[in-house]
Design a binder for these strands. Structure first.
Lengths: 364, 364
DNA sequence: CTGAAAGCGCTTACAG
DNA sequence: CTGAAAGCGCTTACAG
C-alpha cells in the first residue's frame, strides 16, 4: 500500500492488531508426532504418490487426531499462488446482484477458490477503498460490477496489473479489462417489437438514467425497433427516472402531461422491472389499468415480476447464470494470461405475461 | 486439512495450481530503490514514528512510484493475525440474507476486515465443505446462518476451536457458539394481539416448517396471545407449508377445508412474508379478498410487502441491521476471547398496513 | 533512527 | 521413498 490512496487502513492497524489466534497445529507438530519430516507431511497433504502407504496412513491418522487445519495462506505465499477471487458489487442488497454473487460464488467454489466479497453501495469512493483492501489479500482475479460514475483509469491504478479483471454489467470507461454485458439493445428491441406486434404505435421508453450505458443501449434498441416499423420516437416518449420503483411511480405524470388521449402513449418499454412495477403502481393511481388500458414491459425478470398484478412481461437475464459466466471468464483468463481483452454479450429472453396487452379498442 | 472430510479439495490442487502471479513488488524492491533496509520500509508502512521524516518521504515516494501493493497475507502469517472474517449463509439469493450479508460486510469492512463469502444453498453437506475451505484461509471469526438440518456437532469438529463463531437466525443444536436470533415469539405474539384487537377470534397460524426453531417460536408466541385472550388454538388452525410463496398459495385449501363459514378462520398470522404473499394470492383464487374478507400478517417486512395489494401488515426485522449486529458481536468476541457463549435476541417491530382488516361484519 | 537476523507455516528442489 | 535446507513477503526484537 502506498499509504496515500483513499480511506484504506494503514498496514499494521485495525484488523491486524487484534485477533491473535491460539497456537495452531502445524505440519511440524504432525511431523514430530508421526516421526517423519515436515516435507513428508507436506507430500501427504498434497497427495503425492512419492510417499509410502504406511507412512501416509500414519501421517493421515495424526492429521485427523490433532484436528489439523491446512494453512492455505502460508502455502500460497510459498508457492506464489492464490486461491481466492475478489467479487466487488455495486449493491449486494439488490436481488439482481445477490443472484449474480450467488452464481459467482458457486462457480468459483467449484474450482477450489474462495470468494472475497466487497460491496460498494454505488459509491466510487468506497469502490476504490474496497478494491485496494481486497488487493492486499492477493486475489487471483477480480470480478467487478462497477458503481455508477466510477472512474476506470483510477481503478486501473488501484488494481495495478497484477490480477485479471472481469467487469460486469456497466461499461467502465478508461479501463482495459474483459467485459461481460447483457444484450441490452437486443432485449429492448424485442420488447418493443412485441408491443408493435400487439398493435401499439405510440410507445414510450420509461425510466432509468439516460447517462448510464445500459440505459443508452436499451433506448437504442427501442428506437431501432420503432424506426424499423417506420415510427420516429418522439422526445416526449422518453421519460427519465431513478431506476427505483418509488421514483418511477411518481414519474407517471410525465407520460401523459400535456397530450390528449388520442396522442398519449398506449404502452411503455421500461428500463427495468423495478421501474415497470412502479409505473404500474402509478398507472393505477392515475385510474388506468396496466395490462388492460396500457401495456408495460420490464427488464430483468426479478422474482416478483411473475407475481405482480398483472404479471409483468419482461426480459429474463438470469443473473445467477451471469455470475457463473463471469466466473468462468475470469478463471479462463487466470489460466491463460495475456491476450486482448474481450467483450462478451449475454443473451436475454423475452417472457410474455399479462402486462403487455393490445391497445384499447384494437381488433382482436 | 485432514484429507478425509467431505468434498474439499486436496491441499495443492485445483485453485492453487493455476494463477501464478506476475513478479510482485516487495518491500525488498522498495528498500533497494530507496537505499534503506527492509525493516525501515516495513516501519514506514506501519506508520511507525521511529523513522526520520526524510527517510519516510523517500520511501513513500518509492512505494507510490512502483505501485507497491501490501501483502497482508504475508504480514498476517508473520504476525499470527488475521484480517478476514468468514460469512456463510444458507441462501444468499434470498433478499433477506442478501441484506444480512450487506450489513455484515459493511460493519466488518469498517473495522478493516475483509469478508470471505460462502453460500450453502441450504445443504448441510455443502455447509461443511464450505466452512472447511474457508477455515484454511485463517479467518479471525465466522458468522454462520446455518442450513436447515445442519449438525452442530459435526460443524464444531470442522471448525475446531480456532475461530470464534456467531450463529444467526437458526438454532444449531450441539454447538456451543454465540447466537443472534430474532425475537420470533414476541413478534408473532404482537401480530396476533393486533388481530385480536381488530376483533378476530378465529385466527390461524399459516405456513412454515413446524420442525424449524423459528417456526416453533412464532407458533408459541401466537398461542401465547390467543390463550391470553382466552382462546385455545385449534389444531386445524395450524397449516404447514414450505416457506415459499408458491407452496403457500397452494396451502390455502387446508385453511377452509371442511368447515362452514361460521367456523372458518377470519385471519391468519403467517410464518413469514413469502408465505403471507402466497396466501393472499391463494385467497384471491378462492374468491376471497385479503384485507377485506380476511386479514393477513407476515414476518420480515421484505421490500415487496409495502407494495403488495393490499400492503402487508408484518414484522420488520431489519436484516441489514442484524448483519451489522452479528458482525459487532463477532468482533467483540475476537477482541476479548473466552467466556460463556451468549444468546442475543434482536427486536422486531410491528408494521401495520392494509392487509390486516377487521373481521367482516364487525362494527367499526 | 537504521540494519542484520530470525521466523510465521508452508513447499520444493536436491541429496541420499 | 525420506530428510535437510532454502525461501515466499512480511515483522520484530536486538544491536548499533
Amino acid at each position: 500500500m502506498t499509504g496515500k490512496q483513499g480511506t484504506k487502513q494503514k498496514a499494521g492497524t485495525a484488523a491486524g492488531k487484534r485477533a491473535p489466534r491460539h497456537q495452531a497445529i502445524t505440519v511440524n507438530d504432525i511431523a514430530k508426532a508421526a516421526g517423519v519430516s515436515r516435507a513428508t507431511v507436506s507430500l501427504v497433504l498434497r497427495e503425492s504418490p512419492l510417499v509410502h502407504a504406511d507412512t501416509r496412513a500414519r501421517v493421515e491418522a495424526e492429521l485427523k487426531r490433532q484436528g489439523y487445519i491446512y494453512n492455505r495462506s502460508a502455502a500460497n505465499l510459498r508457492r506464489r499462488t492464490s486461491s481466492s477471487i475478489a467479487l466487488v458489487v455495486n449493491d449486494l442488497s439488490n436481488p439482481f446482484f445477490a443472484e449474480f454473487a450467488t452464481g459467482v460464488d458457486e462457480a468459483v467454489a467449484a474450482q477450489g477458490y474462495v470468494t472475497l466479497l466487497g460491496n460498494t453501495s454505488e459509491s466510487p469512493h468506497r469502490e476504490e477503498a474496497v478494491l485496494a483492501s481486497l488487493m492486499e489479500h492477493q486475489p487471483a482475479g477480480v470480478i467487478l460490477s462497477p458503481a455508477e460514475h466510477s472512474d476506470g483509469e483510477r481503478l486501473e491504478r488501484v488494481l495495478g496489473q497484477r490480477s485479471p479483471v472481469v467487469v460486469f454489467n456497466r461499461e467502465l470507461a478508461g479501463a482495459h479489462w474483459d467485459f461481460l454485458v447483457l444484450d441490452n439493445r437486443n432485449g429492448a428491441r424485442m420488447a418493443t417489437e412485441h408491443l408493435l406486434e400487439l398493435g401499439h404505435r405510440r410507445i414510450a421508453f420509461f425510466g432509468g438514467h439516460a447517462d448510464s450505458s445500459s440505459c443508452r443501449e436499451r433506448r437504442a434498441g427501442y428506437a431501432d425497433a420503432l424506426r424499423a416499423a417506420g415510427i420516429e420516437p418522439r422526445p416526449q416518449w422518453f421519460v427519465e427516472t431513478a431506476p427505483t420503483r418509488l421514483d418511477a411511480a411518481t414519474g407517471v405524470d410525465a407520460l401523459f402531461a400535456g397530450v390528449g388521449a388520442a396522442e398519449a402513449p398506449t404502452a411503455a418499454v421500461c428500463y427495468n422491472d423495478a421501474v415497470a412495477l412502479g409505473l404500474m403502481l402509478g398507472l393505477v393511481r392515475h385510474g388506468r389499468k396496466p395490462g388492460e388500458d396500457f401495456a408495460v414491459t420490464g427488464f430483468d425478470d426479478v422474482p416478483e415480476a411473475a407475481f405482480a398484478a398483472p404479471p409483468l412481461t419482461t426480459l429474463a437475464v438470469d443473473p445467477r447464470e451471469r455470475g457463473r459466466q463471469a466466473a468462468e471468464l475470469l478463471l479462463q483468463r487466470i489460466r491463460t494470461r495475456g491476450g486482448q481483452e474481450q467483450q462478451t454479450t449475454a443473451p436475454v429472453r423475452l417472457v410474455v405475461r399479462g402486462s403487455s396487452c393490445k391497445p384499447k379498442g384494437a381488433g382482436s
